[in-house]
Amino acid sequence: MSIAPLDTDTPELTPTFRFQWEEAQNCWVILYPEGMVKLSATAGEIMRRCNGTSNVAAIIAGLEAQYAATGLGKDVRTFLEAAREHGWIRYRAA
């Protein structure tokens, strides 16, 4: 059962995964035992902000500023929930 994150939740990369820029692929990737997921440009920008210090509200605000857009909250939360289900991110205990 998936639960959408709260504005005050602070996501971070799960230590058993690696997130890095791949020059040859020209994209951000998630690496794990014997596997790799290539991320879209926007997914990469969200993951980049899952640094254990920015909360969900700050991540959304940062992206809206970067893309000069509004109303990105729903898409960001949907991605974060999928990322948590894959185990890529976890939420820091408050």
Binding site: E22, E23, A24, Q25, V29, L31, E34, G35, M36
Partner: peptide, 8 residues
């Protein structure tokens, strides 16, 4: 350099 990411 050619893009290999996984090393076994």
């Amino acid at each position: 350099k050619m893009g290999a990411t996984q090393l076994g």
